[in-house]
Amino acid sequence: MTHLTKRIIPCLDCKDGRVVKGTRFVDLRDAGDPRELAAHYNREGADELVLLDISASREGRATLMETVHAVARTLFIPLTVGGGVRSFDDARRLLGAGADKVAINTAAVESPEVVSEFAERFGSQAVVVAVDARGEIAEGESRVPDSASAARWRVVTYGGTRETALDVIEWAKRAEQLGAGEILLTSMDADGTRQGFDCPLTAAVARAVHIPVIASGGAGRLEDFAEVFLRGEADAALAASIFHFGEYSIRSLKQFLRARAVPVRI
């Protein structure tokens, strides 16, 4: 018998020190301020926080360090930072600024040895390998997220803009062997649709590895979270807009999940 709870993880997409994708909280003075949002989610009972940097410029990257530093100073739940993490130096600086874990995506695909390097130096618990997956279907069929129709899933990189030949299941297993402590799995088919997480994909990866899998992409309703934990076998679920828009609070989500017999921290 285990009492480990399923984690709910809000994600802040940041650009040049501001949370983008818009938020609509009435109780925040400045909903674009990552510190205010982090504090808000902490109060609401978020189990962790993920901060993804989508700045393209060098200036944006410099601002990220300040953002991480500012957020981490008053946040006492785990903080993962990702987005453009490529080198050992990037990781070291982020961890030094107060991140507990770094998420590596494209760099891990292009140079898998960075996963091992990070794990050896910082410990596996600090290394999250982010995998962006896209389903492959027979020619002529339309792509349906969260359907069993995908024969397999391919890894995509550079924010979903570049296809690779890597099979998602094989890559997830490899990432575990290389020393990843967790897999952050985003369905590029489901992302942005608000039609639910890709449960077949999540379950396939969760069964293939022995490390926790964080499901991401597609959350639109409370029921979607119950589904990804019960059917998708996820260990944690990440979402952005469903929380940012204030439609559902983390507290109400957790109460909903508890009523569905999903173990959560309340």
Partner: peptide, 11 residues
Amino acid sequence: VFKVPHIGWSP
């Protein structure tokens, strides 16, 4: 059968 490491919130 459990996932290792034990990562997350437990009572």
